[in-house]
Nucleic acid binder design. Sequence first.
RNA 1: UGGCGGAUCGUCUAACGGCAGGACAGAGGACUCUGACUCCUCUAAUCUAGGUUCGAAUCCUAGUCCGCCAGCCA
Length: 564
Amino acid sequence: MNHEETRTPSNFIRNIIDADIASGKHGGRVATRFPPEPNGYLHIGHAKSICLNFGIAEDYHGTCNLRFDDTNPHKENAEFVEAIKRDVHWLGYDWGNRLFYASDYFEHLYEYAVELIKKDKAYVCDLTPEQTREYRGTLTEPGRDSPFRSRSIEENLDLFARMRAGEFRDGEKILRAKIDMAASNMNLRDPAIYRIRHGVVHHQTGEAWCIYPMYDFTHCLSDAIEGITHSLCTLEFEDHRPLYDWFLDTLDVEHHPQQIEFSRLELEYTITSKRKLTQLVDEGHVEGWDDPRMPTLAGMRRRGYTPASIRDFCDRIGVTKSTNNVEMSVLENCVREDLNQCAPRRMAVLHPLKVVIENYPEDQCETLQAANHPQDESMGVRELPFTRELYIDREDFLEVAPNKKFKRLVTGGEVRLRNAYVIRCDEVIKDGNGEIIELRCSYDPDTLSKNPEGRKVKGVIHWVSAPHAVAAEVRLYDRLFNQPNPGSDREGGEFTDHLNPESLLTLTRCYLEPNLKDAGPGDFFQFEREGYFCADPDPSHGLPVFNRTVTLRDSWAKIEKKGG
RNA sequence: UGGCGGAUCGUCUAACGGCAGGACAGAGGACUCUGACUCCUCUAAUCUAGGUUCGAAUCCUAGUCCGCCAGCCA
């Protein structure tokens, strides 16, 4: 196959859609929807669904609605609604004028419920929640009919109207679909479709309602009302499909969308359960929903992940029904690939070690030029001040080379200062504790943008001019959990037991090249030889803060590891 | 012990009865003023057992293992 332009690989859902279009089903129309409940922030798992639904709409010249599944006001709020809209937009998708709320349909849904009652397919039930559970039976035993199952249509109509009017307390009555208490599929054992909820203010409908429809009843009808053709959801709703179809077959609706289920994204070393993410925030294990260690879109944005890299990731992991556990390296590769192309290069010293160039004039300051990108000239150049006193990274100097492969600075050895001169280390200055505090070096004036005569200098290290350096705080992030599957509590432990205590390392004394002084929130860079970083919106103690998005691929670390 | 679903290189995924391919990871090498990037080479898979067929990852039969379901959550 040589369809290089075909970026989006095919999958079983697209195959179904292709077949539907070929057969003329839905008149060849494609309409999807992304239906989050506004009870938390969007995470990487939602990104998979967003890319799937909006991606299909784009490729098939169809539509994709953003619909808030807001039928449980108890857990939802307007802050989440706004955050979700912001994150979908940030990811690069636009719902145009197709923003909906399930609550837009509350009146319509109520009428459908009345229709169900009139068809003798729903009844008001007075059983307590405990009794309902007892009557439901178990996985292996059938349930028993509720004693209220045989109420007359007239009585049900009256009772349901009075439920709406607020005549009954929470839990006193529910409206149930009349299906089959002996069904092997538990969802069909007369599921609840309306419950009573007093005293909650719904973020959209306020106090207009005291009864709220359940998911199963709401979702299929919302899809039908919006003319959705393919209703894509995750695997745990597979058992609900017969119920989805039952409502649409029983009621008089114009469209009957097709529900198709795919497997949830599982990512190594992370969790994507909303309950658990909420717990991380509430218990203060992280700083908030947008903590750069969170797998939320808000967190990933703050961490420096680009929308393009997340979309690319979603393309690469594919869509199937099989259980999966995607390696972190796939995600990391996606950001590196994107950032490598578009991130300007800068120099930043994370663990400063003072270097004095003894043969460089004390009052001299040269302005050197450096490319913003080694492969992309269009990104231009920047200026770098070079002076007698510099900082290099402590990790780039060792008194004695540990092995022949070590290319950095050693006592008496030479190294190239990136974009500048070759220097030699002549003397090591230590404090009373034997700690190295300064290096005395000399430079070769004849090595600016050319190789030294008669010898080879293999190593190149980064540096900043001491008097020009911008002090900054740099935060190095590592995985939030130290277990590949922190969410699967096999041994009955809490998932928080697997939190990585070293997920955040804050460096408070870093020195950046002066060009970084004007970086604005969200600006991203490659700090050469260190990784990709982006400017955090909140300064710390007056210092600019940079977050490490991801390290560079590091083959030296592998060599070191093997050698040690 | 009920119902529904799943199983292909280490990981993710392709194949629609006809050469098991790609990506990530891993190994080796080339290049390099980033131990980055790029380039080249290599390693590596059809859950098991039968059957149908000229030919099976794909169809059939019987197993095995894994996931989901007993909210007035979604």
